[in-house]
Amino acid sequence: MRNAPGDERIGAAATFGLLAAWALHDTEELVALPRWLRRNVPALRERFPAVPEAVWRRAESVDEREFAVAVAVMAAIVTAASTAGRLTGGRSAFYQSALNGFGLHGLVHLAQAAAVRGYTPGSATSPLLVIPFTLWARGRLRRAGVLRPTSPRDAALGLAAAAAATVASHAVARRVLGRRFR
């Protein structure tokens, strides 16, 4: 007999699966990003002259150590969100926002790859893992009756939260490594 809507349990696959999917995706970024930036920023600077010079300088200053520490900080954030999701049966607003932000950031990776007309770190796992996992997990939440209605405002907030977590992760990494902010 099938459970009634709302009775279906949200298991570890949908909650801690966020952490697993994030870890695989960020492994791609960890391996590729610092070298990709060093190799591509000069051409991107010429191609996109409207981007402020400070953005290009900041991108060029990210090295393997800083990026690894930032990824570790983000791991703590995603672990907390996944744990909140598991403990609340998927009802946690923090978990659901993190899930939405994860999926939307996958779309950002695809937009970046389209803008540069080629590979960008994160664009390989986004269509294969990030977006499918997010859609699958949201489907599980919906079938269980615990998915909060998502408005365009909620989507924008999820993406803004993902961006803020990224900025905060890099700020912590720079502080841990004793680097100045530029």
Rank of each mutant, 00 (worst) to 15 (best):
His25Met: 12
Ala124Gln: 01
Val146Phe: 09
Arg35Leu: 12
Gly139Cys: 04
Gly89Leu: 06
Pro49Phe: 07
Leu18Phe: 13
Thr15Pro: 02
Ala156Asn: 13
Glu64Val: 09
Thr120Pro: 04
Arg148Ile: 05
Glu60Met: 10
Gly158Tyr: 06
Ser169Asp: 03
Val78Asn: 07
Glu28Asn: 02
Arg35Ala: 14
Glu28Thr: 04
Ala155His: 14
Arg174Pro: 05
Ala111Gly: 11
Arg38Gln: 15
Thr125Met: 14
Ala70Gln: 03
Thr166Lys: 10
Ala124Trp: 06
Leu128Cys: 01
Ala72Cys: 13
Ala70Pro: 01
Leu141Glu: 01
Leu37Pro: 00
Pro152Val: 14
Arg138His: 07
Ser126Asn: 05
Ala156His: 08
Pro152Phe: 15
Tyr119Asn: 01
Ser169Cys: 08
Thr125Lys: 12
Leu147His: 08
Thr79Cys: 09
Phe102Leu: 00
Ser151Lys: 06
Val108Glu: 12
Asn100His: 10
Met1Trp: 12
Val116Cys: 03
Arg179Glu: 06
Ala21Ser: 13
His25Gln: 14
Gln112Thr: 00
Thr120Trp: 11
Ile131Thr: 02
Arg180Thr: 06
Pro121Asn: 11
Thr27Ser: 15
Ala160Val: 12
Thr150Phe: 06
Glu46His: 12
Thr88Glu: 05
Glu28Gly: 05
Phe48Arg: 04
Ala161Trp: 11
Gly178Met: 02
Ala124Asn: 00
Ala155Pro: 03
Ala168Ser: 15
Tyr95Cys: 07
Ala59Thr: 02
Glu53Lys: 10
Arg175Leu: 09
Ala59Lys: 05
Arg153Ala: 15
Val51Glu: 06
Ala163Gly: 15
Arg58Cys: 03
Thr125Asp: 04
Ala59Glu: 04
Val78Trp: 13
Pro42Lys: 10
Ala32Phe: 13
Ala160Pro: 09
Ala155Met: 15
Leu141Pro: 00
Trp56Ala: 05
Gln96Ala: 03
Gln96Val: 00
Glu28Ala: 10
Ile77Val: 15
Leu128Tyr: 10
Arg9Leu: 14
Val41Gly: 08
Thr120Glu: 08
Ala4Thr: 05
Thr150Tyr: 11
Val130Arg: 11
Gly158Asp: 08
Leu99Asp: 07
Arg175Phe: 09
Phe133Arg: 02
Arg65Gly: 08
Glu60Val: 02
Pro42Trp: 11
Ala144Val: 00
Ala14Asn: 03
Ala81Ile: 03
Val130Trp: 06
Ala113Gly: 09
Arg86Ser: 08
Ala160Phe: 14
Asn3Tyr: 13
Glu53Pro: 01
Ala163Val: 14
Ser82Thr: 00
Arg174Met: 06
Thr83Asn: 07
Leu99Pro: 03
Val62Leu: 15
Asp154Arg: 15
Asn40Val: 02
Arg142Ser: 10
Thr150Ala: 14
Ala162Glu: 13
Pro34Ile: 03
Leu159Cys: 13
Arg143Asp: 09
Ala50Cys: 02
Phe94Thr: 04
Gly145Gln: 09
Arg91Pro: 01
Ile10Gln: 10
Asn40Gln: 15
Ala68Val: 01
Tyr119Met: 01
His170Gly: 10
Leu33Arg: 12
Ala80Thr: 05
Trp56Gln: 02
Arg39Gln: 13
Pro5Gly: 03
Thr15Ala: 08
Arg45Phe: 05
Ala59Pro: 01
Arg91His: 06
Arg175Gly: 05
Pro127Thr: 03
Thr88Gln: 04
Phe94Gln: 02
Glu66Gly: 07
Val55Pro: 02
Trp22Pro: 00
Leu18Arg: 10
Val176Ala: 07
Glu28Arg: 05
Phe48Asp: 03
Arg174Val: 06
Arg2Trp: 13
Arg58Lys: 13
